[in-house]
Structures are given as structure tokens and as C-alpha cells.
């Protein structure tokens, strides 16, 4: 089955599962109707919960989803459905209170029934979940701590909501209605069990050892790993993995990094990591022989799934890591198709892989177009951001048939997509990776 077909099937399943509780409301025997606003409030509550119930799936790193959809798209989708679901769910109590102020007594925690207490508690947890995710950096919550809180709050809030709807039991009389929510709860439990127990156990059984840590230009470090007691993993050029170092995989302190190495090398995995946060600053301290756990590979940012007469790579700074993996793989395979790599950096000295790219240009049909924000004196190359004129200057006439791979922060990706589409490139030929996913 083609990836496009799988994509359609998963999207179809998602639409069906999300709309199912609403459709079941229409099918099932309904209790006698009540006033419009109360019924709307209940329906929106179910709608919100149905969307929020989908949140556990995209971030569970399920291999069958991750092979079809880009992981950063799945994470963005997770964030968006969370906010949309939360907004709909919030409309449930708000409409209820406005339509019937008498129901405000349910907020009185001391004498409200448990079904109402559960709802209030879950709502508070959802507010904390959304606020701590949207404003994590403003609240100065460390990423690792936030992830622990996020996981615990999400499971507790979901359990409280299920308790609420089963105890209120107004529209859950029909076996289809009960069955749907039991199935949804079982899926949440299964996803949580997979993420929190099964996957870490798998990782524990397949450790890797550090064999080298070497500095790169641009305050980055390349970490080389070798499988310890197993055959290692096969990845596709441009993919990435989550790394855990100096702690157990059960601590969930892993961070995503792209492979920089060739897929044709099987006994060694390499990642290049820029010093940006808590974990990335400790990479240089890792010693040969230390254990590292590698959860992956993930991602769809690879050329194997996108055949073309030529490729265009566009990266800013450390966004070049997956591009290097693609280039090294093509060189090892003696792939002679042309590649143009537009590579933006602050200055000439901080161009990560500068020398490696020079070597690669001798081994394959590669043209590197460096763009510098602060060029050195006498610089003959391009400067500033990538413009349409720069793209047109370096691309061949048949560029609309080529495939495009862009890795960088979201504003850069959005700007590039716009320019390429204006130049006649189909959106289907543009593949992106947001390197600020976490």
C-alpha cells in the first residue's frame, strides 16, 4: 500500500473516531429532550472530549503513524487538537452556568456530588496542562520537568473526565455509547502503557555505547554511537531519534536529534547536537563507553520515498544535520543525481560541516550555496536570507520537477514554502522538518 493511501486511511479513521460519539448520540435511544442550551452544552462537552481523547495518539511515537506522517506535524497536530478540544470542553460548563445559573452550585466543592467534583478537578488540570504547555518558557518550567507533569496530569485528567461522564450517565445508556467510551479509554490506557512501559523496556534491551564525541563548527558536537550486544538499527537518511543519556529510559528525559551519518554505515550511528539547552550542553561531557539509549528511527524527511531527477536542500544552521545524512548516503551510494544545497549561517566560522561539504562536493554532483548574515571581507558568495532571486540564480530550468527538503525553524520553513510555490513548485514536492519540535 502506498504512503499516500495509508495517509488517507489514517485520516479517514481519525475523522470517523472523532465524529463517532456525536453520531452515536443521534443513533442511540435518547432521554427526553431538555432546553436547547443545556443540550448544546452536553453535546459540546462530548465533542471536546472526543477531540481531547485523540491527544494520546500522535505523541505516542507509534511506528505505523511515524512512518507515514512527519513527527513534527504529529506534535503540532497534538497541540492544536488539545487547544481546540479544550475550548469545546470549556464551553460545556460555561454554557451550562449561563443557561442555568442554578447549576453554579456544582462548583461548591464541599457539598457537590463526586461526579461534579471530578469535572471541576479535571477542568483545573486541563487549564494547567494547556497553560504550562503554551507558556512553558514564560513560566520558566524546565523541559524535562514539564514532560513529567504533562504526562501525569493528562492521565489523571482523562480518568476524572471518564468518571464524570459515566457517573452523570445521561447519554450513555446505549451499549454503543458506553462501548465507544470504554474503547476510547482502553486505547488511552494502551497508548500510555506502550509509551511508559513497553517502549522503555525495549530500549533497555538495546543499548548503545559512546565511541566518540568530537567538536564541530557552530558550537555543536558530533556524538558517535555503536550498538552494544545487538545488530543496531537501519534508518533512512534524514530521519531522527530520541536520545537518552546518563539516565534510564524510564526517566523520559530524551531529546530528539537527527542522524548525520550515512545509512550505508551499519555499525555506527552519528548525531550532531548544538549546545542549546540543558541536555545539549552535557553532550560534550559524555565519555567513550557510556551507555546511550536510542529511540527511533522516526521521520519522513528522506529522499528514498520521494524519487526525483534532482534535489534541493535548504537549511539554516544546525538544520543541516539531516541534510548531511542525505548527502553522505547519496555519496556512498554513488548516486549521481544533482543536489543544490542552500545553507544559511551567521558567519563563515560557524558553518557546521564546512570541510565535510567541501569533501562531499568532490564525491558527488553537489553544489553548495552558502548564505552568510555577516560575511567576511572579500566574500564573493550570497548574503542574508534566501530570496526568490537567489533560488532562481542557482536552480536549473526544470526545478519544478525536483524535490525540496527544508530544515529549520517554522518561520523559515513557511517563508521558503511560499517562495517555492510562487516559483511553480508543487506543495507535494516540498518536505519540511521543524528543528524546534520539542
Amino acid at each position: 500500500m502506498s504512503d499516500a493511501m495509508k495517509e488517507r486511511l489514517w485520516i479517514g479513521a481519525f475523522v470517523l473516531v472523532t465524529l463517532a460519539p456525536m453520531l452515536i448520540l443521534f443513533i442511540g435511544p435518547r432521554p427526553e429532550g431538555r432546553e436547547f442550551w443545556r443540550e448544546l452544552s452536553v453535546a459540546l462537552g462530548f465533542a471536546g472530549l472526543s477531540l481531547m481523547g485523540m491527544q494520546f495518539i500522535p505523541t505516542a511515537r507509534l511506528p505505523f503513524l511515524a512512518s507515514v506522517f512527519p513527527m513534527d506535524t504529529l506534535y503540532t497536530f497534538h497541540r492544536r487538537i488539545s487547544i481546540a478540544g479544550f475550548t469545546l470542553a470549556l464551553a460545556h460548563p460555561l454554557i451550562l452556568f449561563i443557561g442555568n445559573p442554578y447549576t453554579l452550585r456544582l462548583l461548591n466543592f464541599t457539598n457537590a456530588p463526586w461526579r461534579a467534583r471530578a469535572a471541576v478537578l479535571s477542568l483545573l488540570l486541563f487549564i494547567l496542562l494547556v497553560a504550562s504547555s503554551v507558556w512553558r518558557k514564560d513560566f520558566k518550567i524546565r523541559y524535562e520537568r514539564w514532560r513529567t507533569i504533562h504526562g501525569v496530569f493528562a492521565v489523571v485528567a482523562a480518568a476524572l473526565v471518564l468518571y464524570h461522564i459515566f457517573m452523570v450517565n445521561h447519554y450513555l445508556a446505549h451499549p454503543l455509547q458506553r462501548g465507544y467510551w470504554v474503547l476510547v479509554a482502553a486505547t488511552w490506557a494502551a497508548a500510555t502503557l506502550y509509551v511508559r512501559v513497553l517502549r522503555p523496556l525495549q530500549l533497555l534491551r538495546r543499548p548503545y555505547r559512546v565511541i566518540e564525541v568530537r567538536p564541530e563548527r557552530g558550537e555543536a558536537w558530533t556524538l558517535a554511537l555503536a550498538p552494544d550486544g545487538h545488530a543496531g538499527m537501519r534508518f533512512m537518511a534524514g530521519q531522527f531519534a530520541w536520545l537518552t543519556a546518563r539516565t534510564s529510559p524510564f526517566s523520559f528525559r530524551d531529546n530528539p536529534f537527527s542522524f548525520n551519518s550515512s545509512t550505508e554505515v551499519h555499525d555506527r550511528l552519528e548525531f550532531t547536537i548544538k549546545e542549546l539547552g540543558d541536555f545539549t550542553r552535557t553532550v560534550k561531557e559524555l565519555q567513550p563507553g557510556e551507555k546511550v539509549y536510542v529511540d527511533g528511527p522516526f521521520g519522513t524527511f528522506d529522499i528514498d520515498q520521494h524519487e526525483a531527477p534532482g534535489y534541493v536542500m535548504i537549511a539554516g544552521g544546525i538544520g543541516s544535520v539531516p541534510v548531511l545524512s542525505i548527502l553522505r548516503t547519496m555519496a556512498d551510494r554513488k548516486d549521481t543525481r544533482p543536489v543544490v544545497f542552500f545553507y544559511g549561517n551567521p558567519d563563515w566560522e560557524s558553518v557546521t560541516y564546512r570541510e565535510d561539504l567541501e569533501t562531499l562536493q568532490k564525491r558527488m554532483n553537489l553544489k553548495v550555496v552558502h548564505l552568510l548574515e555577516n560575511p567576511p571581507a572579500g566574500w564573493q558568495g550570497e548574503t542574508g536570507y534566501i530570496t526568490r532571486e537567489i533560488l532562481e540564480r542557482h536552480l536549473p530550468a526544470d526545478h519544478a520537477q525536483w524535490q525540496y527538503f527544508i530544515c529549520g525553524p517554522i518561520p523559515m520553513i513557511a517563508a521558503m514554502e511560499k517562495k517555492l510555490v510562487a516559483m511553480g513548485v508543487s506543495l507535494h514536492y516540498i518536505h519540511t522538518e521543524n528543528y524546534e519540535m520539542a
Binding site: L25, E39, L40, A47, L51, T73, L88
Partner: peptide, 30 residues
């Protein structure tokens, strides 16, 4: 590319959920 599709898909789903909720409330309140 997929991000634009994902956003449109979500807008469609939310619109569908809200419309179904309104329809349901209307039917029940009649």
C-alpha cells in the same frame, strides 16, 4: 505541506463537531 493539510483537517473536524452539537441540541429541544 502536511502541516497545512493538518490545520485544514482540524478546522474541518471542529466545524463538523460544532455543527453536529448544534443540530443535536436543536433536535432535542424541539
Amino acid at each position: 505541506m502536511q502541516d497545512i493539510y493538518a490545520r485544514n483537517l482540524l478546522i474541518g473536524i471542529v466545524a463538523g463537531l460544532v455543527l453536529l452539537s448544534l443540530l443535536f441540541a436543536l433536535i432535542q429541544s424541539l
